[in-house]
Design a protein around this nucleic acid. Structure first.
Length: 293
DNA sequence: CACCCGTGGTT
DNA sequence: TAACCAAGGGT
């Protein structure tokens, strides 16, 4: 039977176990938090840290980034992956300047209206940058809820409403404790209650865990959709092209791009996709380049 | 809702 | 080693 003070136990653990991630420092601006959340979308903490520091050093405000062409954002993004995020982050900076006087908004509706900000990121910014009392559910928290609350080994298919409700029900009353609890749940999922081999022996809420109480039953629900193979995929081709465009500070012609991939039809499809996404633009001379505006 | 979107670390 | 996984979002 789960103990009632799961949040208390988790926050007590977190006070000691929290990794000193740079965007958690007290003096970090809402903009810096926003940048960290964009970079952390589907990307591991260890790979984000150096990019985030460089980014904040170069563009300490939304206005600073908005003043530069998107191509510079895509280059600075480097190899973090999903370069559309760099484009969206630049666009979000422009929107913040145009609609919010250069200040990151604190309201969920305003945050959700920004390019690249979805249900998770909006709540994360509101909670972590502004101390608002909202449930925040990311992939780590989803797993913690599935195990500790629902008694399942895995979260199963997306169930946003279910998870937000579960998190909301556990959320401490005060803004400060709620913010810590949101971060603590994510931290537990990232470092203890991990996807593959959780360290249940070291878990601070083992006494409250429904999965443990049930004897760690294996997951029997529907399997998550498997991601397609990366080798040979359009994503691989797009990545190769983007690497080329970032390196070349001038239009790259079709002949040069043709050497990147043997399948001409697939390469053409990838290029079309990049153009459609705004990551590449056709140059007047027939080449391809990063977006200058 | 299912699928697409990069790159690299982990098991 | 191939598969899985990662502070998701857009369509």
């Amino acid at each position: 039977m789960p103990t009632p003070d799961l949040a208390g136990a988790l926050n007590e653990w977190f006070a000691d176990a929290a990794r000193p991630l740079p965007w958690r420092a007290a003096e970090v601006s809402p903009w810096a938090v926003l940048v960290s959340e964009f970079m952390l979308q589907q990307t591991q903490v260890a790979r984000v840290v150096p990019r985030w520091k460089a980014w904040i050093g170069r563009w300490p405000t939304p206005a600073a980034l908005a003043a530069e062409p998107p191509s510079e954002a895509v280059r600075a993004w480097d190899r973090l992956g999903y370069p559309r995020r760099a484009l969206w982050l630049h666009r979000a900076a422009v929107e913040i300047v145009e609609r919010h006087g250069g200040e990151v908004p604190a309201e969920l509706d305003d945050l959700l209206a920004l390019q690249g900000v979805g249900p998770y990121t909006a709540r994360a910014i509101a909670a972590f940058a502004f101390g608002r009392r909202h449930p925040v559910v990311d992939t780590n928290t989803r797993r913690v809820i599935a195990r500790a609350v629902l008694g399942q080994a895995q979260p199963g298919p997306p169930a946003t409403g279910r998870d937000l409700a579960a998190m909301g029900a556990l959320l401490p009353a005060s803004d400060a404790a709620a913010r810590a609890f949101n971060a603590a749940a994510m931290e537990l999922g990232a470092t203890v209650c991990t996807a593959r081999t959780p360290s249940c022996d070291a878990c601070p809420i083992a006494a409250a865990c429904a999965w443990r109480a049930a004897g760690y039953p294996p997951y029997d629900g529907p399997r998550r959709a498997v991601q397609g193979r990366f080798e040979g995929s359009d994503r691989q081709v797009r990545g190769l092209v983007m690497r080329e465009l970032r390196a070349a500070h001038r239009p790259v012609h079709a002949g040069e791009l043709a050497t990147l991939w043997p399948d001409a039809a697939q390469l053409e499809r990838a290029l079309g996709g990049l153009v459609a996404d705004g990551l590449a633009v056709a140059d007047a001379g027939g080449g391809l380049r990063l977006p200058d505006a």
